[in-house]
Write a protein that binds this DNA or RNA. Sequence first.
RNA 1: UCGGGGGUGGUGUAAUCGGCAGCACAGGGUCCUUUGGAGUCCCUGGUCCAGGUUCGAGUCCUGGCCCCCGAGCCA
Length: 582
Amino acid sequence: MTSTEPSSPPTGRHPATATSAGAAGSDFIRELVRADIEQGTFGGRVCTRFPPEPNGYLHIGHAKAICLDFGIAQEFGGVCNLRFDDTNPLTEDEEFVDGIIADLAWLGFTSEGPPLYASDYFEQLHQWAEHLIGQGLAYVDDQDGDAISAGRGGFGQAGVDSPFRSRTVEENLELFRGMRSGAFADGARVLRAKIDMQHENMQMRDPVMYRIRRSHHFRTGDAWVIYPTYDWAHGQSDAIEGVTHSLCTLEFDSHRQLYDWYLSHVPVPGDVPRQTEFARLELTHTVTSKRKLAQLVADGAVDGWDDPRLPTLRGLRKRGYPASAIREFCAFIGAARTNSRHAIELLESFVRTELNRTAIRRMAVLRPLRLVITNWPDDADGRPVVELREAVNNPENDADGVRQVPFSRVLYIERDDFMEDPPSQFFRLSPGREVRLRAAYFVTCTEVVKDADGEVVEVRCTYDPATAGGSAPDGRKVKATMHWVSADHALDATVALYDRLFSAEVPGEATGDPLDDLNPTARELLTGCKLEPAAGDTAPGTVVQFERLGYFARDIETPTLWHRTVGLRDEWANIQKRLPKR
RNA sequence: UCGGGGGUGGUGUAAUCGGCAGCACAGGGUCCUUUGGAGUCCCUGGUCCAGGUUCGAGUCCUGGCCCCCGAGCCA
């Protein structure tokens, strides 16, 4: 596993966010846990669990749940179990359990022991199912899916009892054993809890507990042809593990009644766990639904689960998002029962804050324009002098030291940093204007060279030798400082610029299909970018700041590829937006 | 339609027992600056609506409005 940062142990409390808003320790769940401890509800014990289904990779929405599950356990001296909810062999795969464990570790969390699996409890679950049958609280139903669905009724409309609802205990037991032993075809029968077909809560209208499904399970192989449903497996698995606080998202609210019903009718050992729901995390301009992400991957709309445009943990990691920034973001937004969609900009601001502190600075020119210094001296051999200029690695951290950057007659500057006919607010280079080249000299534009099409292909300048280091002895000021790269020393690179994956704030809001809002220019590949030599020393996977441009992560497999993590706040871009169109 | 859960600036999120509506992002401006970065200081802007209780209501009560979830043999 690779990491873009030394993986710091999660502390659960992050100083930077322990302010009045969103401070860890102040949400309704933590208050509840605190109250439970004070009242000795679970003997003062706290045990949570994070229960991903191994049918896809983790995304930023899971990060919120993870920070809650693991964070709360840590804060209250408890443990958090990683339990794979592998009750549906059709979609699940080992590939995903490995990926989930790796992503979890990258985020900064590991479970204490080896990971747990709901499939480890299949035998116990089966025994308890027979117990329910024995109590007359479960029965085998021969109806097909459509009939069961129809019999369930609708909102405000009572369901009707299945014609098989009144089978005897003995008959049910025999049929259920037949289900297990493979006597019946897939889908031929199900085991249902016998609760109340007229119940106002649809979840309580005799929910299915087992279905017949001849599918190879990645852990239990072909040992089982019947598989428990989520509702039947979950609460009992929690109880088996001694989970006290089972935290899940709001859509399971109506399942809580069923969760409690099962637990109160099965002889589970120890404390009865309690389910508490919170609002799932949603972000603007993206989707946090495993189903939709899987579809993007399957459709080839993105390169894979680790595509940097995706809000998957591995996508964000490849893109350069520090795990700590994600943790702090999650701590900051807290937990509540209010449905909410956070602005993606808020997440980005946490990324910038972290990277500003930690990222080494380098100079890179994304869209090169030649700049020739006409009065630059030659050496004894008649070649342009090459001078090494000292530049600080990170103005936010002196300990990061300095580096030498070669400077000579022919440089590249950013095309956007030159305008032949600039508006008044533009104070970068233009004819006759003097600017500072970062860590080097003041230069003044004296001439513009164009090609046959009138395109500027080169700017010529003079430099002032007295301004070495970047300040003029006579005290004169320049209004702009620009980055540059020496043409003879430049490293070639490809840079991937990323924009919102979806152009709409709420993907799919207009048409119902998020895919309709996919942003076709979410990735722009720039080739022929020029990097200062020291950028080549950067370890793959690390994130550096290309000065004045943003933060960029060096790709692991392709060292000449850089991913833009996030841009710098860009005042000039704001000015341009306000500028009247010309 | 029935049941459940929610509504605090543009977006999120706080507010002890009922006691000055705070913080962040976004937006506008200031100062500073060898990154138009970072930092600084300031500003704009809010309790869904209507009643009620109270010296005092985001918080309690009544009624309404709006949003989300729920009828998989998905989780």
